[in-house]
Design a binder for these strands. Structure first.
Lengths: 242, 242
DNA sequence: TCGGAGCACTCACATATGTTAAACCAGAAG
DNA sequence: CTTCTGGTTTAACATATGTGAGTGCTCCGA
């Protein structure tokens, strides 16, 4: 079990040190592991979850679907993220959580989470913090969607993913796994498949990024970040007492 | 003092009942009241606040500014919102908070907030919930920005504001005060001033909305909500134990 | 070996939205 | 009453992005 929850503990430790009691309490959480194939629905919009889920492997996404079937992904989650902590307090899901690629999830009963945060004030603040970092990411997405041209928007997203994944030890060299199709990436960026393709090729031509075989390679992070005006500070990945 | 913080207590009571001790503790919070003129900066991007601020009158906004001076507003806050609760946990501001119109703010030292939530577990969950509702609003904005045409986007925003303000008793008849310029509205919607103007006129021609003299009138909420696919559930404005 | 089935990629074209500039209007200030 | 100022509105035009319909590649299963 200790091994199972490890990515999550590691994620929390990006934000603040944990003591032994806290680490033990996290390790003792009752987990139910489930595997979801790509595009499977993990939590349904409109439902009232009794468990929170955290992501161990893969990418999960929050998605909102319009009546004509088009959809927008509002957050991307990476291993170690407590994806559906929201469901603990927000009773009715305003979005669904889907497996963006094949995912390994751990489900924790809300009661267990509630007991944990009642017992461990410090963990409760850390959990809260993780939802605030999610919100900071949302704000960056809003700014990209509202004010950045497609190429800068994509560049910003790739910078974000690169830094977040690196923080979890999921970047090797300067590349990371990203098994999405261009249509799915369009759902993240709020653009059409065709335009994703064009934009991607622009980034390639500039020698900033490679993407093939389900791996993204950041060729020149410096220039990519500069073009996107990407400042990693909002990801809050440094340890500081809460 | 009791009167001063009243809008905030009222806001919390949208989400759950408060007991006397909680109400008393909130009333006892040490507040420093400050007035900000329109467009004044309340919290600066990059700063490390020592106080959290809550909004008593007016509209406040979170804004991110690009290097060329264009800006995107990522959240709008209404009276009763604990605008900068984030600053308690997120140490460095990734955005600024500005007075969208003239604002009356109350500042509370972080220490006092920390003491309050350490003492009152239930309040701490409610505070957390308010930040999660903010995040739900962010998600709706992302979906609007990514997938809705301008007119639906604007319609959705107006529905959101209408419902939120109504929950705080700030709608009279079917109209509410909204003292922004079209350029400022463009910063919210991520569009140019000219296009805001066009879009507004489209809504007017459809007989859905009026906007003049700093007041927005929702002529036909039903049809407006339908066109925007607006579902108020994400605003979580019903009382439920946390 | 063949025939899907996805997916990346292209092309031609449509359309939403941005840009620049100017006219117009109302209220504030002198 | 006049002038100034900020805001709204209109117009003409530029551009980013969407749409619909392909082509061709690669993998995979029959």
């Amino acid at each position: 079990m200790a091994e199972t929850i490890h990515p999550f503990i590691r994620a929390l430790e990006q934000y603040d040190v944990l003591n032994e009691a806290e680490r033990a309490a996290l390790t003792a959480l009752p987990l139910q592991i489930r595997i979801f194939g790509k595009n499977a629905e993990i939590v349904r919009e409109g439902s009232r979850p009794t468990h929170s889920c955290l992501l161990l492997e893969g990418f999960a996404a929050r998605a909102q679907v319009l009546s004509d079937g088009r959809r927008q992904i509002t957050n991307l989650h990476i291993p170690g993220d407590f994806v559906d902590l929201h469901g603990l307090l927000i009773k009715r899901m305003d979005h669904s959580v889907i497996a963006f690629v094949d995912c390994k999830m751990a489900f924790v009963p809300h009661d267990a989470v509630r007991a944990l945060i009642d017992e461990h004030r410090h963990l409760s603040r850390l959990f809260w913090l993780t939802t605030l970092v999610d919100a900071a990411i949302d704000r960056a997405w809003i700014t990209s969607l509202g004010r950045r041209p497609a190429i800068d928007h994509l560049a910003h997203l790739l910078c974000e993913l690169y830094v977040r994944l690196r923080g979890r030890g999921l970047v090797s060299g300067n590349s990371f796994a990203f098994g999405a199709t261009q249509t799915e990436l369009g759902d993240v960026l709020g653009m059409s498949t065709v335009h994703v393709n064009r934009t991607l090729q622009d980034l390639r031509k500039l020698g900033l990024v490679e993407w093939e075989g389900g791996r993204v390679t950041i060729i020149d992070f410096e220039r990519l970040a500069e073009r996107a005006e990407f400042d990693p500070a909002y990801l809050n990945q440094w340890i500081e007492a809460r």
